[in-house]
Every structure is written in structure tokens, then in C-alpha cells.
Design a protein around this nucleic acid. Structure first.
Lengths: 259, 259
DNA sequence: CAGTGGTCTAGACCACAGT
DNA sequence: CTGTGGTCTAGACCACTGC
């Protein structure tokens, strides 16, 4: 008897089934990308009703171990290598060499990176962005929305906001491809010397829009990163709002031990 | 008719009910800490069966809007102010003033902070910790496990690991209370001058152990932060492994624009 | 004790995928 | 078309809370 479930145990059946399947996944009996047994198969195997099997599968989905597709079934998630955002990715020397930040890092991680620019144009500044840029809420700012891919799967959605008076004078910023070194290189070429960046990191569950944009499963966590680019004059000339699939990224920071 | 659900709409009933309740929460009809209507009440109100109501409530739980307690019911989550880990929390001047890092920051956020030291003593170094400390896996290291509370609710579990030869000479590190300024102050008093910290940030869903330790709901996201403390000689004298409830923390970092 | 949520059943019907 | 998952019902019984 391979499946002894429900024998006056403390654990509910659906958790026992989920744990069984989790074992199979972790030990490799169910390899990445393999099909999880269908609901009817599991109903037979464990002598339970559909609702119980469905709850077990839902548990695995919540753990991020499987993904389910209507009409096809559930498959074990593959664990793609994580990209690493080192905190030296904004080195001026990288920009001078014509590399944008995202390329400087994904390249050394051995991942095929890809960007699709979704939109470029004026928008009304949302509240938090306006505050960071020190403009009025709803003021006209330039927004550049883009979607990043690692090895073909979307992993990150980012929107850069620039004050209109800054962006106005830099025609490349209105192009889909802002040129080598990215928008930071263009800003520095036009007299906006960058002194520092500040990043704010939050983690939360993905919204419905993010689930579809990044093709996540509902209930997946995301990292929400908001970055200010500050010039030597102390002006914030760009705010970049980024949402990343949490399982794809590890963020690294260095903090000097100042007095 | 206040509750028009199920009228050949695209949306499943359980989502319509969840959306209804979400509106009530966001508009304040259901205030924080207020009781969500009981399942039987909702079954009556919407003329649906128990399973459908339960799925709606589960949806709200997944969104982090309510929490459910067996035998009592569901209540709207209060949104406690987020603590903010500014990257200047390791300033030597704070240590000299006798403040530990966690106090230096929570104090200025107006939150009642609390620590409980769970254990202090030698352990065998886990793989990743050993690598960071440059010792052999399984080597004896000093571990200090502690649990942090904000306004009475547990929000963060942290374990510090120190190489045995470093910890050995500092008796305060074996006490539950390491004294003013925390363990970093003690390290510096004993000739380990700290030059920098490096932090690695990940986000993921909470494990079962973390769910119970931090009293989260299953499927809640956590921030997993691992910090190295590096001396001027380049030695890593402490690794701190921290798991935080994601909705309680915002991490702030400054990155100078180096060449 | 009554009222709450937690688990589970044995079906039904619908929507989607692939043959 | 068959097989898959997605929604839903109308109950049952159990476990926890608080009076």
C-alpha cells in the first residue's frame, strides 16, 4: 500500500497529499517541467474526492513548486538561475564602455538578456513619483516603460520617470533605444553629472496586472524597487520604478561603515 | 437588491464576493480590526454555498487584507506603519552612543521595539554561512538567535554567526544582552574595526517554520537578508541571517556613483 | 452550549487544450 | 471528441472559541 492517507493522523489529507508530491519534486522523482499526475489520477490513487486533490495542488502552487494550466494540467516549475544585481552596476566606467546597467550584470551571469520598450512618452506624474522628483502631482514627466527578459521569460517590468525640463533637451530619451550606456550616459553627456543613487526595496505579493505582465502564478512574491538618480547638485533627475519576479533576483549592496 | 452576484457575468462568484468585500475594506466600510461578516452570514447574503464563500475569504487572505482565526472569524488587518531600515543604521556614532542598530531606526519610526534572545551558543556552521565566514562547513561558530517585535507583534527573526576564534575572546557575546551598541560595538572594542557591511537581499514565500515563528498567514512573502560584517583587514567577523515579514519593512540603500 | 471556521464528499456543469 | 482543470452545490462532521 503506497498511499496511506487519512489514517487518524493529525494532518489533513490535502496536506499529506501535498507533502507527498513535494517530496517527489524535491527528490527528483518529479523532475522540473514534468507533469504532475492529473486530478483524476490523484483522486483514484488516494481515494479522495476532487476538492481534496485540488486543495493539495493549490498548496503546491502557493509554495511556488508547480504551475497549473487550464485544460493541460500542472507541471513542476523549473528553477532558472538567478540574476544578480550587484550594487556596482552603476559604475560610470560601464556606461563609458557603452553598456547599460542591466547588460553589465546579466552578461556576467551567463543569461541571455532582452529588453522590450513598451512605451515612451509624457504622462502625468503619479503621487509617489512626483514627490521624489520634486514636481507637482500630475505634472508632465517623461515615462519610459520597458519589460526585461532573461532567457526569453519576462522577469522585470521597469518604468523610468524624468522631469520634463530635463528630458526635453535630450532627444535620445524619446527614442526606443536611448543609445550605448543607457539613459544615465545620456544624462551625463548633457551636464547632469550623477552623484549617487538611492534604492528603496519592498517585497509583496504580485498584483493581478503583474501576474499577467510577468506571467507569474497568482500569489507569487515580487520585489518592488524604486531608485532615485541624484546629480552632484542634489537634484533627482530620474526615478525608476521596478517590479521583479522575486525568484529571479538577488540584490547585493555594500554599506561602508561610516562614522 | 444590494447583492447582485452570478448574473451571467464573466467573473466567478467567489471573486465578485471577494471584490465586494475588498471595496468595503478599502473604502473604510469595514474598518481595520473590524470583523468580516461570518461565513453563514455571507452564504445567506449572496445565496451561495459555503465553499464559495470560503474561496472568497481565502482570496482576501492571499491579498493580505484579512486574517482568519479558527472559531472566532476573520478580521480586517490593520496596516501598521512600516519600519524603515535606513542604510545609515550602522553608523559608528550610533554605536558609540550606546544604541544598537535596530533601536537606532525603530525609535525614530515611533514604534515600540522589543527583542527576545532565543538562544546563544556554539553551533555547526551551515554551508552558506561557513562560506561567508571562510571556515569549514560544520566548524564550530557562535550563533545568536533572536526575535524582534514591533508593537508586540513578531516581525523579524535574526541569527548572527561569528567565527569561534573571534567570539571566544569577547565574553559579552555569550550573554543574552551584549551591552550598549550591540555586538558590533563589542567587536570594535576588541580590535575588530569594521570597514563595511555587505547585504544580500532576497524575497520569497515564508516557509512553514517562518509562518509560525512570525505568526504570518501561509503564503505570505518574507524578505531574506544576509549581511556580512567586514573588518578593515578584510575579514568577515560576523554573518547575520535575517528573515522579515515583507509587509513590515522597507529597505533603503545609498549607492555612490563611483567610476 | 451555540457559533465560528476547517475539512471533506460526491456529485454537477462549464471552459479550455489537443486529437 | 476526450481529458484536463475551474467553479459550484448542499450537505456532513470535526475543532476551536467564548459564554
Amino acid at each position: 500500500m503506497t498511499s496511506a492517507v487519512g489514517e487518524k493522523s493529525a494532518k489533513p489529507k490535502y496536506l499529506q497529499i501535498a507533502d507527498d508530491l513535494e517530496q517527489d519534486i524535491r527528490t527528483g522523482v518529479l523532475a522540473p517541467a514534468a507533469d504532475v499526475p492529473s486530478e483524476t489520477t490523484l483522486m483514484d490513487r488516494y481515494k479522495v474526492s476532487s476538492g481534496t486533490v485540488r486543495k493539495a495542488i493549490a498548496e503546491l502552487r502557493a509554495l511556488g513548486l508547480v504551475e497549473t494550466h487550464h485544460g493541460k494540467g500542472s507541471t513542476v516549475k523549473s528553477r532558472p538561475p538567478v540574476t544578480r544585481k550587484s550594487s556596482d552596476r552603476f559604475r560610470r566606467s560601464h556606461r563609458k564602455a557603452g553598456k547599460a546597467a542591466y547588460l553589465a550584470e546579466t552578461e556576467q551571469a551567463g543569461v541571455k538578456a532582452d529588453v522590450r520598450v513598451l512605451s515612451v512618452g509624457p504622462v502625468a506624474a503619479p503621487a509617489e513619483i512626483a514627490k521624489r522628483l520634486a514636481v507637482k502631482e500630475g505634472a508632465k514627466v517623461l515615462a519610459r516603460r520597458r519589460l526585461y527578459f532573461s532567457d526569453g521569460t519576462p522577469t522585470e517590468e521597469a518604468t523610468s520617470y524624468l522631469p520634463w525640463d530635463v528630458a526635453r533637451d535630450i532627444p535620445e530619451l524619446f527614442e526606443h533605444n536611448p543609445g550605448g550606456g543607457g539613459i544615465y550616459a545620456r544624462l551625463e553627456e548633457h551636464g547632469r553629472e550623477l552623484a549617487e543613487f538611492t534604492e528603496t526595496v519592498r517585497a509583496r505579493l504580485a498584483t493581478k496586472q503583474e501576474v499577467s505582465a510577468l506571467s507569474l502564478s497568482p500569489g507569487s512574491p515580487v520585489i518592488h524597487l524604486t531608485r532615485n538618480a541624484v546629480t552632484t547638485e542634489g537634484r533627482v533627475v530620474e526615478v525608476c520604478d521596478t517590479v521583479m519576479a522575486a525568484d529571479q533576483f538577488v540584490l547585493d549592496y555594500r554599506i561602508p561603515a561610516t562614522d
